[in-house]
Design a protein around this nucleic acid. Structure first.
Lengths: 123, 123
DNA sequence: ATTGTTGTATTAGGCTATTAATACAACAAT
DNA sequence: ATTGTTGTATTAATAGCCTAATACAACAAT
């Protein structure tokens, strides 16, 4: 797994987001074993305690669960993951529309702009 | 002007964003006088120094300028504002596409999703 | 039983950004 | 000249976050 940590925001938050994305996007599959806290921390170049903090939060959300000495596993409940994916997509989209609105663009204008940008990138 | 400050992110950043939006969206017009630091701070319910910090940044960007004892004014350079509006819209849109990509949605899928959401809201 | 690996808990320390308090400086208005 | 309003500067206090060190607990593997 690839990590991108910057110093703009709390590290533990960025870890949460990135692990979450990995689950939602399918990099981790339901039931997969997650590397140990220490390993993940080493990969990401952060302190184990920081990684631990992030994992606890993911557990609270229900995305992972723990078998005390065996390690952590991605939830096998595909519904939870699916739900989160839909919810995340909705939130991101609503935030986007909201941000554009603050700039003075209506939903229709926003739609036009994004269509155009997607077209441009394609070429 | 209406302020929305939460405690998720630095106050001075939120102030910058909101004043910037007010300029871009046309709530403030080119050449307009801006209320005093103390007035703005009172309105927004923040410390004057915090507001000051935000205004300094807006000045750096070129959106406002200062006449030492007369107060601050929105730039009269409509080009600067226009440019910023376009740039902001582009950044926001690219960020959106990027966020959706992290969830595993292609640009085309993202376009479908946002179209659908815009339709739904309309009704 | 011993060893190693896993997750967990606790505490302390330091760093940095943010906010707040306060005083200062420039000048317009009177 | 005095007063009030403006922006500015400096310093202090606070809070949050991260790291680090360390110890503990559970259990698998041997």
């Amino acid at each position: 797994m690839q990590w991108h940590i910057d110093s703009e925001r709390p590290v533990y938050i960025q870890l949460i987001e990135q692990i979450q994305s990995s689950i939602i996007s399918g990099y981790f599959n339901p039931g997969d074993k997650v590397p140990s806290v220490r390993d993940l921390a080493a990969q990401a170049g952060v302190n184990p305690n920081t990684m631990q903090k992030s994992l606890v939060e993911l557990e609270r959300i229900g995305l992972v669960h723990t078998n005390r000495t065996k390690g952590r596993y991605i939830t096998s409940d595909t519904e939870v993951i699916k739900k989160l994916k839909i919810e995340s997509a909705n939130n991101i989209t609503m935030d986007f529309l909201d941000n554009m609105k603050k700039l003075g663009f209506s939903k229709e204008e926003t739609l036009k702009i994004i269509k155009k940008i997607v077209e441009e990138i394609k070429e």
